[in-house]
């Protein structure tokens, strides 16, 4: 899927290194580190048998994009997800483009709190709040 063009002009592929993210990707982005805006187009791999975007894909996309924002916010410090809370507001379908600009809620020495409102055509379909632990920080 690495040669897939961006579904919208002005976006570049997000560099994915985790095998599971490469498997479910691609994801595209625009903007500078710290204020990156991400998009992905839902395709037939991502939906359930009713044609609705699978919650697992949305949560994976949330982990990927919020994680990238944590990376930006910490000078690329290694970190792990401690907790993720998600709410599923509306269904999405194949062909939809899911967008998010992750928002930093708070950063301490050891923890980062990051959230995102995920939209399709301007309407919020899903929210995620996550807590990340910076490895080696007390």
């Amino acid at each position: 899927m690495t040669d897939t063009p961006s579904p919208l002009p002005g976006y570049v592929p997000t560099k994915l290194v985790d095998p599971f993210e490469i498997f479910v990707g691609p994801v595209f982005e625009t903007g500078a580190p710290g204020s990156r805006h991400f998009i992905f187009r839902v395709d037939e791999r991502h939906v359930n048998m009713r044609g609705v975007l699978h919650g697992g894909m949305l949560m994976t996309y949330a982990d990927l994009t919020l994680g990238a924002a944590v990376w930006d916010a910490t000078d690329y410090a290694p970190s792990v997800t401690l907790n993720m809370h998600t709410q599923f507001l509306k269904p999405a379908h194949a062909g939809d483009i899911v967008e998010v600009t992750p928002q930093l809620t708070r950063k301490t020495r050891a923890l980062v709190f990051m959230r995102g409102d995920f939209t399709v055509a301007g309407r919020t379909i899903f929210t995620a709040e996550s807590i990340w632990k910076l490895l080696g920080r007390d």
Partner: peptide, 9 residues
């Protein structure tokens, strides 16, 4: 294991 896969499962 990727956190996304654990949440998916």
């Amino acid at each position: 294991v990727h956190g996304g896969m654990l949440m998916t499962f």
